[in-house]
Design a protein around this nucleic acid. Structure first.
Lengths: 210, 210
DNA sequence: TTCCTTGTTGAACGAATGTATAACAAGGAA
DNA sequence: TTCCTTGTTATACATTCGTTCAACAAGGAA
């Protein structure tokens, strides 16, 4: 018997491709993280945020801790991707460097929701070995990319300089400025923070095109 | 009837002065934070770490969230106190500045356990309004103290400089270096991190006595 | 249409969470 | 000694946590 016109109505749920659903759950989890910190990283809250039943998280991920790992890697990927668009393409080292730095002070990276999520995750990285391993890999790539650009610039200007060491300083400074802005926006704004990074770099390298 | 020699034995528990007991509980809570992040900030774990019954936390604090506030303020106080010993006493601005910076790269501040606890707390500050208010107050004092020293130095050397702005950069850099070292000790060590801060400062102010 | 894969639901479970409360007892005061 | 304050314990309680699992059904394949 086919469904009557009155009965066909709406299906009780919509099936979604597994990869897409996973992405939807990861996005929902990040939103929870941004709203309530790691305390909001919960099966109940995430599944509700994604408009999905509780059981689905365990179907698509290796438990709630498995989801946490994938959330961390997704955030890492989107950060590196934002930089990659500019960092690994054509253009001189100076262009590449400024493009990456600017990326870090522009949405979607430089946004309350994103930085709150990062802050919540860092608090876990210190404790969770799997997150720690993931962190190490991505920061190595990040540091090397910036370090290479810095070294090239220094070489072209005949300045003696340890690119990797300065890259570490730059990354630490960016992270620190993120924290200050995220925890108390009244002490810094986007432009001041960005300027602070360039001030440090130009004190070593001389004027940068930007 | 007095207790017999056999029965007097040991009391089932020892009464402790309220203020001291509060401090003991705060210390235990910080140890938990350092070990397991905010997920370990739990009535069960903290009371067990303090060798005390579960009910005692609610007797001495306004619930577990009240304890969290007091933990944050205790950590803030001990950080400011470590700096205050040097920062607000005699000595020229240069001495005071280097003393504070050195404090930040020496135990007890520069230690895995301490920094892990800070990291866990920062993840909550972004979400918790009461923590945020506490954070703002303490960082203002911190920034002003460093800013004043920087301004004095710049003035004496006839360098035009915004002391507060540079102080913000210095604090952000220190926080960022803490994070990098805490999350992956293989990329920085204590001396490299400390040197990075001085490198930034000396690029602006010239050589510093240290 | 009929079948079959698999995305999805919802209930059930034990463990862990924070809080309230009554009973206990340590240790100084009188 | 006796009394009394209050620091301390231990239990009970309602929630919320993460996981498991059987049953359901959406939607393409045949």
């Amino acid at each position: 018997m086919t469904k009557t016109a009155a009965a066909k109505a709406k299906p009780r749920f919509a099936r979604v491709d597994a990869d897409l659903r996973r992405q939807m759950l990861i996005d929902a989890a990040i939103r929870c993280l941004a709203e309530g910190g790691i305390a909001a990283f919960t099966v109940d809250r995430i599944s509700r945020e994604a408009n999905v039943s509780r059981g689905l998280i365990n179907h698509h991920f290796d438990g709630i801790s498995g989801l946490l790992i994938e959330v961390y890697e997704a955030m890492t990927q989107s950060m590196l991707a934002a930089g990659r668009e500019t960092l690994f393409f054509e253009g001189g080292p100076e262009e590449r460097l400024t493009a990456v730095i600017d990326t870090m002070f522009r949405p979607p990276m430089f946004a309350k929701s994103s930085l709150r999520a990062w802050l919540a995750l860092w608090g876990e990285v210190a404790t969770n070995p799997r997150l720690k391993a993931s962190h190490r890999r991505s920061y190595d790539a990040y540091r090397r990319a910036i370090g290479d650009a810095l070294s090239e610039i220094a070489k072209a200007r005949k300045i003696k300089l340890d690119g990797e060491a300065l890259a570490m300083t730059v990354i630490a400074l960016i992270d620190g400025l993120w924290i200050e802005w995220c925890l108390d926006s009244s002490v810094v704004d986007r432009d001041t923070a960005r300027a602070a990074v360039y001030a440090v770099l130009e004190a070593r390298l001389g004027k940068l095109e930007r």
